[in-house]
Simulated scan of single mutants.
Amino acid sequence: MAGSLPQAAVFPLALPSVSTFAFPKAARLTKTDEFSSVFALRPRKRSPHFVLYVRANGRAEARLGVVVGKKFAPRAAERNLVKRMARELFRQRQDQLGGRDVLLRLQTKFPRAEFTSRAAVRHACLTEISSLLEVAARPLPPQPPPSPSASPEQPKGLPT
């Protein structure tokens, strides 16, 4: 074809790769055991709608888990909105959160009387999740030392 343009002329600039802004599997809590080990801890911080759990993970990268149940967000669009916002805010702060597992859980509904539009829900999510992730970036409290194992002494009350 003499009249066709070369490929470089049609697309002169390369578009940025989608993977640049992706949420890779290495940055996610995926297994039930991973979620359970973080849930076993005391909540680090609560906001009006969310609970934050944070734990050291012994890795270089941070990982995120988001729990949004149907009980508190009955519509799939609302659940997806909350998860998308949490992942994007986490992605922006991921370098500050290195070495931690961060778990966000929606704990109360967004009442329709207060949150009449998606923009209102989006704004509430933005402010609450941002403030919770700032708390997650703070230094973690020292972990208690493991309990001492049974001493080699003879237990009391047993004959010698």
Results as ranks from 00 to 15, higher is better:
I129Y: 00
E153S: 15
A137C: 03
P142F: 10
L140P: 13
P146V: 08
L132T: 05
S151R: 09
P144T: 08
P142M: 07
A150L: 10
R138Y: 02
P145V: 11
S130R: 07
S130D: 06
P146H: 04
P144L: 06
P146A: 07
P139V: 06
Q143C: 09
R138T: 01
V135N: 01
S149Q: 14
S149I: 12
L140V: 13
A136E: 07
E128C: 10
Q154G: 03
P141I: 13
E153W: 03
S151M: 06
P141V: 15
A136Y: 08
L126N: 06
E134W: 01
P148Q: 03
E134I: 02
P141T: 12
E128V: 09
Q143N: 08
T127G: 12
S151P: 06
P148G: 04
A137T: 04
P141G: 14
V135Y: 01
I129N: 00
A150H: 00
P142V: 07
E153G: 13
Q143F: 03
E134Y: 01
P148L: 04
E153D: 15
A150E: 01
I129C: 00
S130A: 13
P155K: 12
L132Q: 06
E134T: 13
Q143A: 15
P141N: 05
S147M: 13
S147A: 13
R138E: 05
I129S: 00
A136C: 12
S131W: 08
Q154Y: 10
L126M: 09
A150P: 04
S151A: 12
Q154C: 08
Q154K: 08
I129Q: 01
T127P: 03
S130N: 10
S147H: 10
E153Y: 05
P148H: 05
Q154I: 12
P152Y: 00
P142I: 05
A136I: 10
P145Q: 13
E153P: 03
E153Q: 15
P148N: 05
P141H: 07
L140E: 07
E153I: 14
A150V: 01
P146N: 02
P141L: 13
L126F: 15
L133W: 07
S147W: 11
P148D: 04
S151D: 01
P155F: 10
S149R: 11
A137H: 02
L132M: 11
P155V: 14
S131D: 15
S151F: 03
P144E: 01
A136P: 06
P146M: 07
T127E: 15
A150R: 00
P145M: 11
E128W: 08
P146C: 03
L132S: 08
L133Q: 05
S130P: 05
P155D: 08
E128Y: 09
L133N: 06
P146G: 00
L132C: 12
L140H: 01
P146Y: 01
P146K: 05
P155T: 12
I129M: 03
P144H: 06
P144K: 02
E153A: 15
S131C: 12
T127V: 13
L132H: 05
L126V: 10
Q143V: 07
S131G: 13
P146L: 11
L133H: 05
P145K: 08
A136G: 11
P145F: 01
